[in-house]
């Protein structure tokens, strides 16, 4: 594994992360927001893998498995929340859930 691969791998991870972030910020549909969060999580996982292979350590892959597990549970909780929001508000618009306005 050489230098170029590390740089482009981290670059890809960064681009994915920013894409996910932008998705969370500009999307109003909460399902898409959840999808974007997943993209961000996978970007972070990719960064761990790249870093792990750079230093030839297994820790990066161990961390990725953690992230995968966490993403699975996150999705289940997130979907449950989305269902609840849909039941309560009859819409999937995230901005409609603004009852806590100061």
């Amino acid at each position: 594994m050489n230098e170029v691969q590390t740089v482009s791998g981290l670059l890809l991870a960064g681009i994915l992360f920013v894409l996910g972030l932008v998705g969370v910020l500009i999307r109003r549909n909460i399902i898409f927001m959840l999808v974007s969060v997943e993209i961000m999580l996978n970007a972070a996982g990719l960064a761990f893998i790249v870093a792990g292979s750079k230093w030839a350590e297994p820790d990066g892959q161990v961390m990725f498995i953690f992230i995968l597990t966490m993403a699975a549970s996150e999705v289940s909780v997130g979907l449950a929340l989305i269902l609840q929001i849909y039941h309560q508000l009859k819409t999937l618009d995230g901005d409609a859930a603004n009852k806590m306005r100061g």
């Binding site: 969370v24 500009i26 109003r28 995230g94 901005d95 603004n98 009852k99 806590m100 306005r101 100061g102």
Partner: peptide
Amino acid sequence: FSFTQSGILRWYI
């Protein structure tokens, strides 16, 4: 400060 508490999730993010 109460202006920042808009209730819109994306603002908080």
